[in-house]
């Protein structure tokens, strides 16, 4: 009589082990856990291309929006899970560097990249991929229907006609939201910047969790204006949404998507391979499918519906400022706007 009551439990445990085994069946390769804030549709092409070049390594993505992935990495500091941080705002990487979470590594071929796209220190802490910037999506159909004009500047968005029609990302969770906020604070100065946001807050319908959502919502006509970033804007337009992509005349905040190795990784060699790959021309050609401005000089194929003058509209950006003041800015922002009884919900 070996078939005991615990047998049921044992069967269950065995089953769960089997399930677990099934998940890690492909464990022969080095599994590289990569924390990223890249857009969903970019993950697969990047993974495929990298793994083709490095068949012994398999990328396991952990994706979330910039704010979340940043917070998560900070939280896991004492018990890290990530091997590599890829496609995360440089602002956040500098933050990690200050926290001692980065393993500096001199990427092969980094010298060929634009100087602004690599950490100046030696060995560098991070390596850039592409730049992304704030952009405004404007739904022409809804705008016409509701008689709401197309904005051309940040200042336009303060006009009462936009009340309840503007969506922007919550900077606490979204890197896009943060780069807009950081951009206003840097270009207008802190006092003016906050004053601008106070005004804008009156017109905001909702602060979304992710940076893409405002543009997608504008594309679907749910709102007329979405403050998002240029890549998502051009993507939506290409998909056929009736939107215009606007880089406001005052200039836009921007950030670099960059990569770094997490200190203490057990897969250092594989991690280095991934970083080396991001500096190759092939990789940058891939990045260029989505972004107009990438790290590798000369790779600048035109992205469909990508705003023209993008490079010119990028404000003078101080990553160190953003990184250093990130927490303070977010705290202030949260205090001012998050969850405040909405002026809109009358």
């Amino acid at each position: 009589m070996k078939n005991t009551g615990k047998g049921l439990v044992a069967t269950g445990v065995a089953l769960s082990v089997l399930l677990g085994a099934g998940l890690s069946a492909a464990a022969a390769k080095t599994q590289l856990t990569v924390y990223t804030a890249l857009e969903n549709e970019q993950l697969r092409p990047y993974k495929v291309a990298f793994e083709k070049a490095n068949p012994d390594v398999e990328i396991v993505w952990v994706r979330d929006s910039t704010g979340v992935i940043t917070a998560r990495l900070l939280a896991e500091k004492s018990n890290p899970k990530a091997d590599v941080i890829m496609g995360v705002a440089v602002t956040s990487l500098i933050l990690f560097e200050n926290e001692g979470m980065i393993e500096p590594y001199a990427v092969k071929g980094a010298d060929a990249l634009r100087p602004a796209f690599r950490d100046a220190k030696n060995p560098p802490a991070w390596i850039g991929m592409d730049a992304y910037m704030s952009a405004v999506c404007y739904n022409t159909v809804e705008g016409q229907k509701k008689n709401i004009p197309q904005p051309t500047s940040w200042a336009d968005l303060l006009k009462p006609v936009y009340r309840g029609q503007v969506v922007m990302p919550n900077p606490a969770s979204s890197g896009t939201g943060f780069l807009s906020v950081s951009g206003w604070l840097q270009s207008k100065g802190e006092a003016e910047g906050w004053k601008y946001m106070d005004g804008l807050h009156q017109n905001i319908a909702v602060y979304t969790h992710s940076g893409s959502a405002p543009c997608v919502q504008a594309a679907r006509g749910e709102y007329v204006v979405g403050i998002s970033f240029e890549y998502r804007a051009s993507q939506e337009k290409t998909k056929g949404a009736p939107i215009e992509v606007i880089l406001p005349s005052e200039g836009v905040g921007w950030d670099l998507e960059a990569s770094a190795i997490h200190k203490g990784t057990k897969n250092l060699e594989a991690a280095k391979k991934l970083l080396d790959w991001t500096a190759t021309k092939e990789a940058n050609t891939l990045f260029n499918n989505y972004f107009g401005v990438v790290a590798y000089p000369g790779v600048s194929k035109e992205v469909p519906n990508y705003p023209k003058d993008a490079e010119a509209k990028m404000i003078k950006n101080d990553f160190a400022f953003s990184a250093k003041n990130r927490e303070a800015i977010l705290a202030e922002w949260t205090k001012r706007y998050d969850g405040k009884s909405a002026p809109k919900a009358k």
């Binding site: 979340v68 917070a71 998560r72 969770s173």
Partner: peptide
């Protein structure tokens, strides 16, 4: 709020 505090800000 819990979600924002924890996932958003890891607070």
């Amino acid at each position: 709020d819990v979600y924002k505090q924890v996932m958003g800000q890891q607070n």
